[in-house]
Design a protein around this nucleic acid. Structure first.
Lengths: 199, 199, 199, 199
DNA sequence: AATGAATGAGCATTCATTCAT
DNA sequence: TATGAATGAATGCTCATTCAT
């Protein structure tokens, strides 16, 4: 996982530090120490502290997009595709808690500061959901009355809130498998055409 | 809207300022100016800046709980109750954007700083959903396989993410009615017993 | 000891608080609480915080002057008078630690802030020593080569430094009697062996 | 006088500022300006404001100890040694008024805040006096009845109080030589006429 | 006279950013 | 490229003082 170049080293260090302390409580010197570079070196790769956060979003979520897209490439059934998305998202969030925290907390925090909110990696990631839904609607598997733009938010919001239980660290945890199964049961029943069977 | 006493005046001012600038970028002097009191006066009512934020959560969400509980008192059908919760939540979030932002962003930000995360007003609010689901399960209206603890998160997460579109200010907005209808269509189909008709 | 009127109550409270926390760390509200009056009441009797300190000096040292002058009235021998002064000073400092601290620490602190340093009660108190020395010189009991203005400082400084041991709270304490005896032995007799020549 | 490194520059600047305004009235920015560094730079060398004060004591008094110990090395006679100590102390206090004020005022102020009062440079300095007295007692030059622990305080207190006249700035000043001679005359010979009996 | 809520000036400390090396 | 010492703007909080009651 260790990145060869400084840029990546700093990104990974920043993800860890932002997750642990939050953007505003994170110090540039914390990131520098974690990345094992000097404070000043960070400014050779990033314009300022906020620029680091944006880069973390773009690169970490970019990798997430690559990953899920690759998995989706080998699927045809929109039902399976939604399952793949959910399972992948939840397992990544469970495994990579630093990334999970940054997405769940810091991404929101900074959302209002980002000028064009839709033109970023995060939107691209969530839009994968609406693309799947549209595909399902074309195949008459998902009901036409469902609005993909709203459903994608409902689906992502559900996954996001469910996975928060792991970062916040509530004791009565449930497994990735169980959570995936539950959210799919709710959503597939919810958006499926009445006569489209669940496999 | 004008609060009778200073405590409330400061709470409302803080909600506004936290929503506009975020907790860390908000200045005590901003809140004081908004509340039309001196900086020092704030410390007669709150211990420190973070204490103001916690109080905002407790009091504003407390009021939200009162409101939705009163509405739910006159409903018996668990299907209607979920509809009432969704409609109320979305319309309050659409109308009171300051509160919406604080819940969506600052509440998460500070979640990790709050020791016992479940022992607070926010948890109480979300638990209303699971209570409704359990009620529906007892009446065999909602499927027994649904785990209320996970479903409540999925439902709240969906509402939360959907309502974010209004605070972030994305242009292609949809109405409260449409959003409510969509999320209910998905969730009620999703958790209803197959033979339980939608009214 | 409890004063009948508010003015005295505040003076005594201030002496206690200044001794415990020091002038700068003492809060007006501390003094008010100790005196069992409201904060604002203090400003009916004193112009400001520093004015309280000055008043403490004047009144507490004023009482000290009264006391020692009364004791000295019944003495004729300048040797005895110096002994009375030393004994009285040390026993008051040992008994009234609040006053001791204020004299030893706060009086010095504020000395530079007092415009006319000689025209105050403290100078009046120390001048008692030089008056005794002059009396002794007139009676050819004290050597004429001794300059009363320097000797008074040496004598008072010795007593002051010796009594600091009680306020600072150093463990190996010595008694008032022993301290008095020693300082008198040094000042009245000198520390040289009678037969040891000076060079 | 210009210090080579920043640490010393700040120490000297702080000594000057503390002397002029007192510890509590001194501002970090005053010290920074005097030392010609930025405010923040001070915190690269010291933990906090109080830490600066303690360092001033330790370093300035440390230098004083070095100086007087070197002078005492070339003396054998305990009488001369006490004379050397007195003369050195008074002339340093007269010349270095900033140091004098800090010792006379701030050292006392903070004495109660220092945990182990005896384990510091100041005690080391005053203990030089008792060491000399013990030496004189071993040589039967000083009376055995004198308790060095009390006498050191009496001697230092006398010097301290005498030298205050220069920092407080009383007009009728006396010279270092005269003050030294007087305090030595008192301490070495006593103030009684040789033929005046004690009672 | 007495109160104590309200005021707001004032400051120690932090930390993102710079720049001489 | 890389460093990290130095910078100085920025702010949460305190508390002496005021004044309406």
């Amino acid at each position: 996982m260790k990145a060869a170049n400084k840029h990546s080293k700093i990104i990974h260090a920043a993800t860890k530090v932002f997750a642990k302390k939050g953007f505003f409580n994170a110090r540039i010197s914390d990131i520098a120490k974690e990345a094992k570079v000097a404070d000043g070196t960070i400014y050779l790769y990033f314009n300022n502290k906020f620029d680091i956060l944006i880069s973390v979003f773009e690169e970490e979520i970019g990798a997430l997009i690559e990953q899920v897209k690759k998995l989706l490439d080998s699927e045809d059934d929109p039902r399976e595709m939604l399952a793949v998305f959910a399972k992948n998202h939840l397992s990544v969030m469970k495994k990579n808690k630093h990334l999970a925290e940054v997405i769940q907390i810091e991404l929101r925090q900074s959302a209002k500061l980002i000028k064009d909110y839709r033109n970023n990696k995060f939107s691209e990631y969530v839009d994968i959901i609406s693309t799947i839904i549209k595909l399902g609607q074309e195949q008459s598997i998902y009901r036409a009355s469902i609005r993909p733009g709203i459903a994608k938010r409902a689906f992502f919001g559900a996954l996001d809130e469910i996975s928060r239980v792991w970062t916040v660290g509530i004791s009565t945890e449930y497994s990735v498998e169980e959570a995936t199964q539950q959210v799919l049961e709710i959503f597939l029943c919810g958006i499926l055409e009445p006569d489209a069977s669940l496999h």
